Amino acid sequence: MSPLRGIALKIASILLFSIMAAFVKAGVAHVPTGQAVFFRSVFAMPVIVTWLALRGDLRTGFRTQRPMGHVWRGLIGVTSMGCGFAALGLLPLPEVTALGFAAPLLTVLFAAVLLGERLRLFRLSAVMLGLVGVTVVLWPRLSFDDLSGPATLGVALVLGSAVTRALAQIHIRRLVATEETSAIVFYFSLTATLFSLATLPFGWVMPDASVLAMLIAAGLIGGVAQILLTSAYKYAEASVVAPFDYASILFAIVIGWVFFEEIPTVMVVIGSAIVMLAGFLIIWRERQLGMKRGKARSLMPAKW
């Protein structure tokens, strides 16, 4: 174990995921969401396959006992990715990032319902606190006079992404019982590529050189970020590196301000702080109880 190395890898992965989101945000202004998901998935595959080959895990990356399990994981994951990418085209980057913090809170609830994990009062209270924070972030966006507005749609999409991302985490917890990490990483990229390619008949366009470069960069950076994230959990326990997920809001604020002229509102800042507090409380409680979910967490992208 090398906690400092694990923390450094986690922060680097979060930074790269934030940069990837910025490229996607710029790209979805010019191409359909399904096309952006395809580029994110297909150009991550060479990076991941090379990584598996260098680790000597290429053979295990192709071996699976539960092929349909990977298909379902891919379907859930690509749905989350699609909703998140579409939301990036409708809402500021910091706001999408803040609302995405609902995913780990929902994972706690889904684990209790779907996996039978015990949900004690402390953790339930922390989850409720976090959901209050999410409500604070989204409340100014809910215009009940115009529920069909783009902002309302953006909120619905990012919350849909959070729900499906939490469900993907639950599915990964089931897969790790029989599947190797390398297989889960490889087959997600493969199935996400195939599912997103199925959107081709729904209006793909030929992007210009700059947009094409951004989409390719999103895929390559996403692949590297996934590798760094997975590697972080080799050097430090999940409870050590998990709190650094929240560095994403800082990166999102800087990137949104510099490249998109997006300044987070006071409500986004306050709501994010509440959600972060709830997340820290859950992480602290899990460490107190000695829960070890590092393998499953390492397979879950911080953001798509």
Rank of each mutant, 00 (worst) to 15 (best):
V49C: 10
V49M: 12
V49Q: 04
T50E: 06
W51M: 05
W51A: 05
L52V: 02
L52W: 00
A53H: 02
A53W: 00
A53R: 11
L54Y: 10
L54Q: 00
G56Q: 09
G56C: 12
D57F: 08
D57G: 11
L58A: 13
L58C: 14
L58Q: 12
R59Q: 15
R59A: 15
G61C: 07
G61I: 05
G61Y: 01
G61K: 03
F62R: 14
R63N: 04
T64Q: 07
Q65T: 08
Q65M: 06
R66T: 07
R66N: 12
R66F: 04
R66D: 13
R66L: 08
P67V: 00
M68N: 01
G69P: 02
H70F: 14
V71D: 14
V71Y: 14
V71F: 14
V71A: 15
W72M: 15
R73Y: 01
G74T: 01
G74Q: 05
L75G: 05
I76L: 14
I76W: 02
I76D: 09
G77C: 02
G77P: 03
G77V: 01
G77M: 03
S80T: 15
S80P: 13
S80F: 03
S80G: 15
M81T: 04
G82D: 06
G82M: 07
C83A: 04
C83E: 03
G84Q: 05
G84M: 07
G84A: 03
A86W: 13
A86Y: 10
A86N: 09
A87Y: 10
L88I: 03
L90E: 14
L90N: 10
L90Y: 11
L91C: 13
L91D: 15
L93T: 10
L93R: 08
E95Q: 12
E95H: 06
V96E: 10
T97R: 04
T97Y: 01
A98I: 02
A98K: 04
L99D: 05
F101S: 04
F101D: 03
F101W: 07
A102T: 06
A102N: 03
A102S: 08
A102F: 02
A102G: 10
A103F: 00
A103H: 00
P104E: 08
L105M: 05
L106N: 11
L106D: 10
T107R: 08
T107W: 00
V108D: 09
L109D: 01
F110I: 02
F110W: 04
A111C: 02
A112G: 15
V113W: 00
L114H: 06
L114A: 09
L114Y: 06
L115V: 03
L115P: 02
G116E: 05
E117H: 09
R118D: 02
R118I: 01
L119M: 10
L119P: 08
R120K: 12
L121K: 12
L121Y: 13
F122W: 10
R123M: 15
R123C: 13
S125F: 09
V127M: 06
V127A: 12
V127H: 13
V127P: 07
V127C: 08
M128C: 12
L129Y: 03
L131G: 11
L131W: 11
V132D: 06
V132E: 07
G133F: 11
G133R: 14
G133S: 15
G133C: 14
G133D: 14
T135N: 09
T135G: 10
T135V: 09
V137A: 03
V137M: 05
V137G: 07
V137W: 02
L138S: 14
